[in-house]
Structure formats: C-alpha cells, structure tokens
Nucleic acid binder design. Structure first.
Lengths: 210, 210
DNA sequence: CTTTGTGAAATCCTTCACAGCG
DNA sequence: CGCTGTGAAGGATTTCACAAAG
C-alpha cells in the first residue's frame, strides 16, 4: 500500500486546519487520487468510516501510523555522505516522522570524524559492528554506484531489513530484505520524455504526469 | 515507459565493460525486471534486436536516448535552496545526463546572492522573467510544503512544462504539465511498513520490496 | 541451439455503480 | 439525503509460451 503515506499527509494537513472529519472525496483531493480507491484502501484496514459523515481524522492518523509501523521509532543508518547523503542527514522530515538516524558511515578517510548535524561520520569499515550495536533496521544508501551493491550486501549481512537506495543501480538482495530505489536522474529522464511529448502537441492533450 | 531510464543505465554499465551486445535476459538482470518485459518494451520502439544474438549496446543507447529526449540539452530551474535543493544543485548526475541547470531561485533574502556550485541564487520574485529568458523547460521544486503549490502555479504560468516535486504535498496542475513527485519520508514510511512485516515473520517469507 | 518478437492467458489495479447504513 | 463499503466491469500490465529468425 504505497498510498497510505499520502493519506497520512493529507490527514495531517486536514488536522492542522482543525478538521475533525474528512470524506473519501476530501482525502482523494488531498492525495491526488480517485475517491473510490481511497474507500477501497481504507476498507482494507477495517471499517473506519461512518456513512453519511466520513472518516475521523485523528482516528485514521493513528490507524495508518500503526499499520505503517510508525508508532515505534525506527533506527536508520546513512551510508555515503556525499552531497546527497549530507542533505539527507540534515533533512528534518525523517526525524519528524519517527525515524532516528543512529549512524553516518563513509569510506573516505577525509570525511571520517567530521560532523553533520549533531552526528559524527564514522568509518564504513566498522559497518557491521555499528549496525548491530545500534540496532539499525533501515539503511539509506547514498554511495557512488560502483560501491552500492557491496555496501548493500554488508548491510544485509549485518541485519538491516530494509534499504532505501539512492545510487543509480539496481540492487539485488534476499527476499526478506525490502529494497526501494529513488533515482533522481531517472525521474528527470521520465520528465524529459513527457516534456518532449508536450513540445510536440500544442500543449492541449492530456498526459498524466503521475 | 518508466523503465527506459533503467535500461539506459544497465546499457551504459554494459558498455563500460566493453560489452558490445546484450541479451534481453542480461538487460533484465541489470534493470531488475523480467526478460519478457524487456523484449516487449524494446519491440515497442521497433525491432532493434538480432535473434540468436541480442541487442547492440551502442545502438540501443542512442535509440533510448532519443526517445527520452536526452539528445538535446534541457534547461532546468531549481526552486527552493534548502538542504535538499542545494544538494540537488550540486548533484552532478543531472549534468552528466544532459540537464543544464540555468537558475537557482529562493524567496529567502538571506540566501539570495550566495553561490551554490557556480551559480548564484536569485530572487523568486523574478521567477517569471528568469524562466522565460533562460527557456527553462523543467523545474525542480524543493520549497517547503506550504509554498509548493504557489510556486508550481507560477512556474506553469511562466511556461515550464514539467515539474519534479520534492515537497511533501500533492500538486495540482493543468494536464499539459507533467508533475512527478519524489517524497523521501514517504519512501521511508513504505520501507517501515515492510520492515515491520519482516519483523513479524521469521524473515523467511518473500515480500517483494520493489 | 540461442534469442527475439508476439499473440494469448493470467494477474493486478482502477473505476463504476449502487445497495445499505446513518 | 450524504457517504461508505463493495461486487462487478473494465483496463492495463505482466507473464507465459512458442513460432520464426539467425
């Protein structure tokens, strides 16, 4: 259910505006999807809405948070402190949503010992010990592409169960480890494709950008 | 065709290793997908493979680059120079793939005039003029969430035809503008969900992470 | 004997439309 | 009435399986 986080965002926005109840259509607008799909998704979590009224905002926030496993804090390790890694380390969105960064690892001796935010960069040589000691469950991978698979293998062996990969390569891993990928230049390339399409038409035709 | 950039990456990796030809299965491994789907995707671009041999690496790179519109340089403007925006501005992956950053815009007077890489941050007040003058076709949005929709509206009005949105909100826009979203905390939340699932099982069951 | 290109089957996901509850 | 919950319909995408080509 990749849409739950979207709903959560829309719900929090609604709560900020002191809305106590929200309809599937209101949620759909906030999340940028169809209202039928909102109802179907939410009915999957149990019958949480009241007919004729809508969904209780606070109740749904709790329910979705629980389902997503956000009720307990998750320990995150960031591997690779280049431009992107550093920005991620400084990004407060993680902290705000219950993710605690427990370590920053890099292989470059020049970086080791320097501080980012209030954490010190440590040596990637000690990856296994650090992951185990601090109970890191999730890793954010922002190394150069050639080192990503190796780093991933070590993270998996050390007990990490989920990896968010920013390196522009496909990573292989065992089935019990979830690997997601975010690739900035891939996203831009997809946009480039659509942009080109638009340049062709007069700009009138519909192309879902989604 | 959201998979073409992946194929491109796998092809470039194959070329780096002096491979002159590649099978659908080899490409599939590199891109992390099924080989049948590779063949179907590529057959859609025309018959480019040779039976019994595979696909010509250099030829395919050219073909996919053309389809994605990467053969001409695209002008990109980055709006919002916080941690993430700055990292994106410094990210060389864009440049390497034919995207040229033509402007950096921010609303914060303290940031205006400072340099990031070899570009100076300019005032968001001049957004319309700057986008028009420099022919920016694609915008990267990394503003705080509350300003994202407003910035998007102005970008669209100024003639931008594609937006890559890093702000954690859904953006509305006309059909002729493609809007894609990358949300880091959403990604982490999805991982959190899978992580939780894994913690429940002994770690043996299969859960696709992709 | 290898590997593409592609109909057909299977699967997944979305939308429609409406019964039923409040 | 308004709005949820959901079967059924419709679309889209993925996988299978194999004929044809080199």
């Amino acid at each position: 259910m990749a849409r739950l986080p979207r709903y959560l965002q829309a719900l929090i926005a609604a709560g900020d505006v002191d809305q106590t109840t929200i309809s599937s259509q209101g949620l759909a607008r906030g999340a940028g999807v169809n209202s039928a799909i909102v109802r179907k998704d939410l009915s999957h979590l149990g019958a949480l809405g009241r007919r004729g009224v809508g969904y209780d905002v606070a109740g749904l926030v709790d329910e979705i948070s629980t389902v997503l496993g956000l009720s307990t804090e998750r320990a995150v390790v960031i591997v690779g402190l280049g431009n992107l890694g550093r920005a991620l380390a400084a990004y407060d969105g993680f902290h705000r949503r219950g993710f605690r960064i427990v370590a920053l690892l890099d292989a470059d001796p020049a970086k080791i010992g320097t501080e980012v935010g209030d954490l010190r960069i440590e040596s990637a040589d000690d990856l296994e010990d650090i992951v185990a000691d601090r109970g890191a469950q999730i890793a954010v991978l922002a190394t150069p592409a050639p080192h990503a698979q190796d780093a991933a293998d070590r993270l998996v062996a050390a007990g990490v169960r989920a990896i968010l990969n920013f390196a522009p390569v496909h990573l292989d891993g065992p089935d019990h480890v979830s690997i997601r990928r975010v690739d900035l230049s891939t996203e831009l390339q997809i946009l480039s494709f659509y942009e080109q399409l638009q340049a062709g038409t007069g700009g009138g035709d519909a192309v879902a950008g989604g």
